[in-house]
Each structure stands twice: as structure tokens, then as C-alpha cells.
């Protein structure tokens, strides 16, 4: 089902030649473009998400992406529409309920677990009603980089640009409201509105990530780069930049590996991202053990 039959390309360590070979295929160029857009947008949004401790909301949104995409396939409209529609709608619902997520009581977690399982079951129903999907739900769940059209790349770029632009406008008050909501509210920052707006941005970013890594592995591009960057440096601007770079490295590294190996893209992206995360933790622990001899330049080694 993958490229293994296409003369089985072999990775030579000559990167220039490799890229020339890969980019001879238009779909690989599209995959790299889409990967770059998605990973940067997700890393930036995910950075705020990790800071705001809303990983749980991100998980719920990514689950909503699966029935969205499968319903779009069943009805016969573009999957992008299903992804964005369901994720943004789910974000609005979460914002309206105004739940705390992490500190939820026993009953609320039972509700969430049921809702997630029901959403996945609906996705499965749509998939099984639509018989034509050859690979079954695995491509939707674990990601695929084949068949990304130029139109989809354009849509990803437009949505990504809008998300980043809105985030640039609200970034500073959002950071304020995240770090100290009470003081921010006292100073006249619209904390509730910002939180709702951020959830919508999160929904859009989740929808973008789902199209690359699949709905189950969204965390690899949303949470892990941001968590890694926040391990390496405490300065907000620098770690934001670092998160975007790590996300890009994971995504492109995963694409290169998936081109040469017949295994799914999601596996490579999660593995690279997780390795970086573990290295960052190890580096930090080592750094702490050696004492504070050198500055933050040390930690950058774990980013690759």
C-alpha cells in the first residue's frame, strides 16, 4: 500500500540527491509542504496548550476528528471539511461547557470517557457503512502522506496563517491570562473570551495535525515538541521558536523515513518526537547532576 513497490528507493547519505529524488514526485513535495505548515502551526498552538495544561482538551478534539473525517468520506465531501467542521464544533462545545478537564471529578471523567468512545464508535459506523475504503480506518487513525493535493496544501496554509495571525494578536494577553488568570482578569483582560478563542484555534490546529499524523497520534505534533522545548529553556520566546523547529524536524524526519520504509508515517513521527523528548529529559537530568556549570547552550543537543 506504500511506496515499497516503486523501485524501492534506497537512502544514500547524499542528502541533496535524496531530496532531489523525493521531490521529483509531486505528492512528496505536497507532503513536505503540508508537513511544514502543520508542524509549525501545531507546535505554536501546542506550546500554549501545554502551558495552559489543556492537553486533555486536545485529546478530546483529536478524537472528534475521526468521525468528522469518516462522515465526510461517507457523504462524499472533502475530508478537510469534515476535519475542520467537527474539530471546531467540538472546541465550541467544550468552550461552552467551560469544564476544567484535568481537575474533573469522578463523574465528569466518566462522561468524557463515554463521549470519546461514542465518537470513535460513530466514526467506525461511518467507515463500515462506506465500503470503498481499501485500507479501512487505519489511514485516518494513523496518518498517511499519500494523495495530499495542492488544493489541500493551500487550504492548510490559509487556515494555518489565520491561526498564527490570531495567535500573534492575542498571544501576549493569552500568556498573561495563562500564567496568572486572577491578576489578568483584574487588569481587564477578557480571560473567558480568550480561553474560548484559544480552544477554537486548538480545534483548527488539531484538524490540521489529524490530516498528517492521523487522529490518534495528534499528540506527537501538538504536545511533544512543546514539552521538549519547555524542558530545554525557560524563556517563552525562545522555547516557542524551539518548539516550532523541533516540530518541523520531527515531521520532515518522519516523512523522509516513511518514504524509504514501508511503515506508517505516524509511527516515525511519534518515535522521532518521543526520542527527542526523552533525550531532553535525560539532558536536563544530566545537566542538573553535573551542576550548573554551563548555560542553556548545552540543552540544544537534545533537540535533534
Amino acid at each position: 500500500m506504500l511506496l515499497a513497490d516503486a523501485n524501492s528507493p534506497v537512502f544514500s547519505w547524499n542528502l541533496l540527491a535524496d531530496f532531489q529524488e523525493m521531490w521529483a514526485y509531486p505528492f512528496m513535495v505536497n507532503a513536505f509542504r503540508a508537513g511544514a505548515i502543520v508542524s509549525v502551526v501545531c507546535a505554536v498552538v501546542g506550546w500554549f496548550m501545554v502551558l495552559r495544561r489543556q492537553t486533555f482538551a486536545g485529546h478530546t478534539l483529536s478524537v472528534a476528528a475521526f468521525p468528522g473525517a469518516s462522515l465526510a468520506i461517507l457523504v462524499g465531501v472533502s475530508t478537510s471539511l469534515g476535519y475542520f467542521g467537527f474539530c471546531v464544533a467540538a472546541a465550541l462545545v467544550i468552550a461552552a461547557l467551560g469544564r476544567k478537564g484535568r481537575d474533573a471529578g469522578a463523574e465528569e471523567s466518566a462522561v468524557t470517557g463515554t463521549v470519546q468512545a461514542f465518537a470513535l464508535a460513530c466514526g467506525y459506523l461511518f467507515i463500515s457503512l462506506y465500503k470503498g475504503l481499501l485500507e479501512g480506518p487505519t489511514a485516518l487513525l494513523f496518518g498517511s502522506f499519500l494523495g495530499i493535493t495542492t488544493g489541500q496544501v493551500l487550504l492548510l496554509a490559509v487556515v494555518g496563517a489565520v491561526v498564527l495571525a490570531v495567535l500573534a494578536v492575542i498571544g501576549r494577553p493569552l500568556l498573561f491570562a495563562t500564567v496568572d488568570p486572577e491578576v489578568a482578569a483584574g487588569r481587564g483582560v477578557p480571560v473567558r473570551l480568550l480561553s474560548a478563542l484559544f480552544l477554537v484555534l486548538l480545534g483548527a490546529a488539531t484538524a490540521e495535525a489529524s490530516q498528517i499524523t492521523g487522529t490518534l497520534l495528534v499528540f506527537a505534533l501538538m504536545v511533544v515538541p512543546a514539552a521538549t522545548a519547555q524542558q530545554l529553556t525557560g524563556r517563552p520566546g525562545l522555547s516557542l521558536l524551539l518548539a516550532a523547529l523541533i516540530g518541523l524536524a520531527c515531521c520532515w524526519g518522519g516523512l523522509i523515513a516513511a518514504y524509504y520504509q514501508p511503515y506508517p508515517l505516524g509511527f516515525f513521527v511519534t518515535t522521532i518526537a518521543f526520542t527527542g523528548y526523552v533525550l531532553a529529559h535525560l539532558g536536563r537530568a544530566l545537566h542538573g547532576a553535573l551542576g550548573r556549570t554551563r548555560g542553556s547552550s548545552f540543552g540544544l543537543g537534545g533537540a535533534a
Binding site: 492537553t55 486536545g58 494513523f142 490518534l216 497520534l217 504536545v223 511503515y263 511519534t270 518521543f274
Partner: peptide
């Protein structure tokens, strides 16, 4: 915390996808 759990389980699912491909191919 949930960031650690999320990272670990994203990877475990990725690993599952890997084994799935090994099995089917």
C-alpha cells in the same frame, strides 16, 4: 502529569501502527 502520559501513549500507539504494518505486509 498528563503531558508525560500523552507523550508516552502517542508513542505506544505509533508503535502499534508499526506492528500492524509489519503484520499485514
Amino acid at each position: 502529569d498528563d503531558v508525560v502520559i500523552g507523550s508516552v501513549f502517542a508513542w505506544i500507539l505509533g508503535l502499534g501502527a508499526f506492528f500492524l504494518t509489519i503484520y499485514t505486509t
